[in-house]
């Protein structure tokens, strides 16, 4: 096994930027230039990450943000703290079949057989690898709702009970959802589930209640290795922007054109 050298990756010039990201940035810049010249200026001098959330009027203005998450697969140690934190922060049932976020372990043997597991969503960590023969590659992949820019779940909701906020989070209206589960079927990532007591669709909210207070999502807060990076997709000087400049970025199931806003670095081709 060769060591992964993060220092080297960090020193390399920023050539890794994604084409799609460029385009999105360009389009949004045009839009902003047309509509909101003043807020853009304010946005540029704003302190990065979630430290300066208050808009001029004092309240939180979703139109000034667009959130995304970066995940560095090579930094995830599979401790499962994110899963546990998510469950407690968002009141997710503590059973083994409902998760807003979970961690998968991929073990690719010398025989090229791909073995994936996620016992209890990775919440209690992972048992030792039960292998016959050698391991070619092995790694952990945290998963969550991708908060897609063109989200199939929002498209299919018959009543408008799931929606995209101005700051890019996909949320569910508990009091309006009829519980038809079409959104669960439409999600390619298995990120949605039906709440066993509320009988409505449930999912990751990017911890929306924390974002408006200027806090990062609970999973990002507790991640001990910085494998999860949270922040603004559109602005230039933010941890997420840096993450996307210094890494080759991939998204999950790009062929479905859902335009995820969860960006993976060092993602293996076997991950689905």
């Amino acid at each position: 096994m060769t060591p992964r050298d993060h220092d080297l990756a960090d020193e390399s010039p920023a050539v890794a930027e994604n084409e799609a990201v460029n385009r999105r940035e360009f389009l949004s810049e045009c839009l902003k230039a047309c509509q909101l010249a003043a807020p853009v200026l304010l946005g540029v001098i704003r302190v990065p990450l979630l430290e300066a959330q208050e808009s001029e009027s004092g309240g939180y203005d979703p139109a000034e943000h667009l959130y995304g998450m970066g995940i560095d697969v090579s930094k995830c140690i599979g401790c499962g703290q994110c899963v546990a934190a998510c469950k407690s922060e968002n009141d997710v049932p503590l059973d083994s079949r409902h998760f807003n976020t979970w961690v998968e372990r991929y073990v690719i043997g010398d025989n090229h057989v791909v073995d994936v597991d996620s016992p209890n969503g990775g919440m209690d960590g992972f048992p030792p690898v039960a292998t016959e023969g050698g391991i070619r590659r092995a790694f952990f992949v945290p998963k969550l709702c991708n908060h897609c820019a063109s989200a199939p779940c929002v498209q299919v909701c018959p009543v408008g009970a799931t929606f995209t906020t101005d700051d890019g989070a996909i949320l569910v209206d508990d009091e309006y959802c009829i519980g038809c589960r079409y959104c669960i079927q439409a999600c390619p990532y298995g990120a949605r589930w039906l709440h066993p007591e509320k009988h409505v669709a449930a999912k990751c909210t990017f911890c929306y209640h924390r974002l408006v207070q200027g806090l990062v999502p609970a999973c990002v807060e507790v991640c001990p290795t910085g494998a999860r990076v949270f922040g603004e997709v559109e602005r230039r000087s933010t941890p997420l922007a840096r993450f996307m400049r210094f890494n080759d970025i991939q998204v999950l199931k790009p062929h479905l054109n859902t335009k995820p806003k969860v960006y993976y670095a060092n993602l293996d081709g076997e991950v689905r």
Partner: peptide, 11 residues
């Protein structure tokens, strides 16, 4: 939980 040897952890 973090520091036990696991081959899937980064080298």
């Amino acid at each position: 939980r973090c520091h036990a040897y696991n081959p899937a952890r980064p080298t």
